[in-house]
């Protein structure tokens, strides 16, 4: 009941600020301001996994073996390289209101379905970006994207691609969260993730666990580490003008 009142109040307050401020719907959730970064710093380093690996999930490839092969697949693998280097992690700043423009390469996310697997497994993209989806397999895949909101998830879109060569473009209309989960209902071992951000200070780690984020506005930032099965960890960092921070970050199960 308390929640109900607070939500109603929030609605009323929201309406009042809108009316008083004369702000349109589309401008809510202030846009990230793109521009030159003065005395930008750099965040680079390695993300590692420490501790005991969690139990591996395993799903049988139960159909379409002429394309998908046979055996067992871990839909959400923990890929660890030398010295605990964690692939498919994401390193991001939580909130940046103004900074460098989005590099063009980051604004065109794409996902391929090949031999009944998604490629890539983890990538980053701007919130609202148009995702290009390609089916390379001569059978039905359905690209089903969800926004994660706490423990809940909500469908963003779900598009059938029954033939090889079919391409769709659809927006990642994330409303409240950051994480987009992707699966294929026709093949329950297929899984992929997109970490969406309001600003370009976000990177997916490579096979060596490395990340490199440049032109970061100096100051205090909340740093987020995320991985599909390890969840999210945050810590505070301080970046001086023009400073390069070489970070060694850890995630545990």
């Amino acid at each position: 009941m308390i929640k109900s009142i607070s939500r109603r109040r929030a609605l009323v307050a929201g309406g009042a600020t809108l009316a008083l401020g004369g702000i349109g719907w589309s401008q809510i959730g202030r846009a990230y301001a793109q521009g030159d970064v003065k005395d930008g710093g750099r965040l680079k380093g390695v993300l590692r996994f420490t501790g005991a690996a969690p139990a591996e999930d395993s799903v049988s490839i139960s159909k379409d073996s002429h394309i998908c092969g046979v055996g067992e697949v871990n839909p959400n693998p923990l890929t660890i390289g030398a010295d605990g280097a964690l692939k498919d992690g994401v390193v991001a700043l939580r909130k940046v209101e103004a900074g460098k423009p989005w590099p063009a390469a980051m604004t065109q996310p794409k996902i391929d379905q090949k031999r009944c697997l998604f490629e890539p497994f983890v990538q980053v993209a701007p919130k609202g970006a148009e995702l290009t989806i390609v089916n390379h397999d001569p059978l039905l895949h359905n690209i089903h994207t969800y926004e994660q909101i706490g423990r809940a998830r909500r469908t963003l879109f779900n598009i059938a691609q029954p033939m090889a060569g079919q391409t769709d473009i659809a927006p990642l209309k994330v409303r409240r969260g950051f994480v987009v989960e992707i699966d294929c209902d026709a093949h329950n071992w297929m899984s992929a993730w997109i970490y969406t951000a309001d600003h370009p200070y976000v990177a997916a780690t490579d096979a060596d666990g490395l990340f490199d984020i440049t032109d970061v506005p100096p100051g205090n930032h909340e740093l987020v580490m995320w991985h599909p099965i390890l969840g999210e960890v945050t810590r505070e960092i301080t970046l001086a003008a023009g400073e390069t921070l070489d970070l060694s970050l850890d995630m545990k199960a």
Binding site: A10, L11, A13, G14, G15, T17, L18, L20, G21, I23, W25, S26, I28, G29, R30, R175, R176
Partner: peptide, 19 residues
């Protein structure tokens, strides 16, 4: 103060609010 309140309301509810 009003601007700060607006800012607070907007960041707290980043989703467009339906009234």
């Amino acid at each position: 103060i009003f601007a700060a309140l607006v800012q607070f309301a907007l960041t707290k509810h980043a989703v467009a609010q339906y009234v």
